[in-house]
Write a protein that binds this DNA or RNA. Structure first.
Lengths: 368, 368
DNA sequence: CCCGGATCTGACAACGTTGTCCAGGCTCTA
DNA sequence: TAGAGCCTGGACAACGTTGTCAGATCCGGG
């Protein structure tokens, strides 16, 4: 139909030129500069017939400029399309008004709200947010964090992938505000903001026990990850409190990719001592477990760590131990700026409480 | 129990000091500098007993330095904890090796993968990603974009909130690579990468019609938003193609917050000419509509624009018109770097195809 | 013994901004 | 009308890096 629009048959991608009224570039932007260069304050000053510093004053809204002069300068700015070069400004002033955020994976629904919360606080302090994903790789975390330090971010919010952060010591010493989030810093003292992973997991498992379960499975991440280890500890504590010996076949650690989670879940459901309930160590695990349970004939109870969207619409609704990602991010960012203020000096670890949200799946009775 | 750990009773936040072995700050970091200052190449040069430029050479891996000299310099670098100041470097070199991403809301599950994809491409080109959320506010979008330009990002990926981007003209002229995403640029010519919103919506609605529906509702965002307008246009086209006159009461525009979506949905379900199917204009709308439909006694068909997690686990599974957020982000970022290469000069609009994923809710027959 | 060339090193300017400081012109008062 | 004081504007250095260029050093060969 649309004969005039080229369509790539294989990919279905449609491309149309957008050149309706491409503004032709002027032969030369402004006097004395190479093509593509931007005007500087010097150019503006020349055009307005004033001194360099006067332009600086106008740009920064400093007092001591006649309205008439200001008008002339403003005119020159608009005419040339001048925009202050913040790199130079940073170099001169020493503060960049930007903070860095190193997280694990921006695409993970847990980090979206967290990142947004950090950004919101940064914005309130007039700072921009630079962020990068470590992909759970310690080397990449370090590379990123140091690159951010080279940019001279004022502060750093880090969701650690590694467990040794001594590489940050020179930075801390140099005054880079730093807050660790979700997992504590390794081998250095630093502020950190965590969820109460241990308590949350313990409560979640205790909830299952309270509903009559004794054979409860645990599927979680590698215990070298702090959150995973803490949640496992919570699971064990709850079982021990109830006097239930844990069988090895009930625990699956270091497993997060869907296929392996599926296999792990299936194994603990069909093993010699089959579980009647599963505690899922994080949202990715929970999702896969839901899929597996949906295929089962008998009803298996489930409590997941981390809330998931639409959990309440499933049949049954998914009971979860929820963390407040936004609150964590907000807390961390606020601490960071308090470090920069000087209001905060002693590194602390704060743990935010989790919340058990009962929706049905965690209240199912055991069915053998 | 934990009598030694202070717990705020109201918020449940637990705070413990992290000062186990706080490294005491040295009286003075390095000679001739204020406290808190970082060592510079000059300091390194002095300590290593070499010239400034030699340090620069070592830091940047330039040739022409004796192994012995290099060793001495490297030693001084490690001893002082030197880290190159990229602000100064940027000022000198003109390129920042960073790109900016202005999106609507990082917390929206659609933008997480998109952002991540952009970041991944940036990383492949050795660039960092600075991003900010416009919160759908045109002023904030402009403020952000210009702040990024002041930082002299090499390029800009923008998910527009406003519809007039002439404020970017000086930047484009100055050579800032720019790609608009998800919605086209307003009043300027620029590269843009979009989903085929019109075609996707048309297909989705046609799908409902093919299953026997004639009274089909549409709930979407304000038509001033390009995607919303296009999807509405797709809805109308499908209806017209089928010869079905659309009643005003079937359409609800400019409605995205849960309460109003709920009201809108309820109204079109109970009105004088009640719909038997609903087309939801975006993921937020879809989620709310699912909730409303779950409360209904009769089965109402649903097709949503944008995929949502767990959509396949609901009863019935949710049929959606899916966009590939990651592909969009990847495409946009790649175009951006091609602009920087010089490989790409003419602004184009590319439209990525959408995919109809049938899961059940869109295949329900009409029930009056 | 000296010279040419290759190799290594460092002095210096420049990037664009801001802080400091001083000059010149104005107003106000005695 | 002269002097004090204020207001405005500009010259200059500095921020930490890199590019340019020239000087220093070392080698072998004539």
């Amino acid at each position: 139909m649309d004969r005039r629009i080229p369509v790539d048959d294989r990919t279905g991608i449609r491309i149309v030129p957008e050149t309706i009224r491409r503004s032709d570039r002027p032969a030369d932007g402004h006097p004395g500069s190479r093509y593509g260069n931007r005007p500087t304050m010097k150019d503006v000053a020349a055009r307005a017939g004033v001194g360099l510093k006067t332009v600086s004053r106008v740009v920064n809204g400093e007092p001591g400029v006649t309205p008439e002069t200001e008008r002339r300068v403003q005119e020159a700015i608009d005419a040339l399309g001048f925009r202050r070069n913040d790199s130079a400004r940073v170099l001169r002033k020493g503060r960049t008004a930007s903070i860095g955020l190193v997280l694990e994976d921006l695409a993970d629904p847990f980090y979206g709200p967290l990142s947004r919360a950090v950004e919101e606080v940064a914005r309130a302090h007039g700072a921009l947010l630079i962020n990068g994903s470590s992909a759970e790789d310690p080397d990449r975390e370090q590379e990123l964090a140091l690159a951010l330090c080279a940019r001279r971010v004022d502060g750093l919010v880090i969701i650690p992938a590694g467990d040794d952060h001594r590489y940050l010591e020179p930075e801390l010493k140099a005054g880079v505000a730093t807050v660790f989030v979700d997992r504590p810093a390794g081998k250095i003292d630093a502020d950190c903001v965590l969820s109460d992973n241990y308590g949350g997991a313990r409560d979640g498992v205790a909830h299952l026990i309270a509903h009559g379960h004794r054979r409860i499975g645990f599927i979680g991440d590698m215990p070298r990850i702090h959150t995973a280890a803490e949640r496992l500890r919570g699971y064990r504590a709850a079982m021990e409190d109830a006097g239930i010996p844990v069988e090895d076949s009930w625990m699956s650690l270091g497993v997060t990719d869907p296929e392996r989670v599926r296999r792990a879940a299936e194994e603990m459901l069909t093993g010699p001592s089959p579980v009647t309930a599963i505690f899922a160590g994080n949202n990715r695990v929970t999702v896969t477990v839901i899929r597996v349970l949906a295929e089962q004939t008998r009803a298996v109870a489930l409590v997941g760590f981390d809330d998931i969207e639409l959990a309440d619409l499933l049949q049954p609704g998914v009971t979860v131990v929820a963390q407040d990602a936004a609150a964590i991010g907000r807390n961390a960012a606020e601490r960071l700026f308090r470090q920069l203020d000087g209001t905060l000096v002693t590194p602390e670890r704060i743990e935010l409480p989790t919340r058990l949200i009962t929706r049905g799946s965690g209240e199912l009775p055991p069915a053998d």
